[in-house]
């Protein structure tokens, strides 16, 4: 009897998927031998089935109308992709480093290229920095690279922005 009490607990745990493989084997063995526990198992199975099949309550129409009337209208809805600033800044600095490296190699290999470059982008920030005689063209190049990088990222981000739905 005492032994069966423990098996009854195991039957309840079996239906809660709380038994180990080993325990299941032990329970299975016992159910083959003990009629009383087998009956107990069948009763528990019936209860489980009834609980599992308990129907949901239907929300009354009044509640549905009430909730839907509360939600305010919106004219336009845009889906904005999530934007991770840490990743964005890392990418921007990565692009900037490449731009600096390419420009450095370019200017180092071609004497006079700087003048040509400044002339070509005279309206840009690098020209601005050089004409102000700031600590030379390196700072200008860095600023220029960062501006280019962030602009690229911003354009990319904007391109991801799309209208999902209009009321």
């Amino acid at each position: 009897m005492n032994e069966c009490r423990e098996y009854k607990r195991m039957i309840v745990r079996f239906f809660s998927r709380d038994l180990t493989k080993e325990e299941e084997k032990i329970l299975n063995g016992h159910l083959k031998r003990c009629e009383r526990c087998k009956k107990e198992f069948e009763l528990q199975e019936q209860t489980e089935s009834m609980l599992r099949n308990r129907p949901l309550s239907e929300a009354p129409v009044a509640v549905v109308e009430r909730v839907l009337s509360i939600i305010p209208e919106r004219k336009e809805v845009y889906a904005r992709p999530s934007f991770n600033w840490r990743v964005a800044v890392s990418i921007a600095y990565g692009i900037a480093a490449w731009v600096i490296a390419v420009l450095t190699v370019h200017f180092a290999s071609q004497p006079g290229a700087i003048d040509a470059f400044i002339e070509r982008v005279s309206t840009t920030m690098i020209h601005f920095s050089l004409t102000l005689e700031s600590p030379s063209f390196v700072i200008g190049t860095v600023i220029y690279s960062l501006v280019v990088s962030f602009s690229t990222l911003f354009i990319f981000w904007r391109s991801q922005l799309r209208q999902v739905y209009t009321v």
């Binding site: 239907e58 909730v67 809805v77 845009y78």
Partner: peptide, 25 residues
């Protein structure tokens, strides 16, 4: 979820339709 977060009424209506009986229960 993005639509829900943006305040999309139709998305919320869908959410409500799908879950109204469960929450009610």
């Amino acid at each position: 979820v993005i639509r829900l977060k943006s305040g999309d009424k139709r998305a919320f209506e869908k959410l409500f339709t799908d879950y109204k009986n469960m929450i009610y229960t």
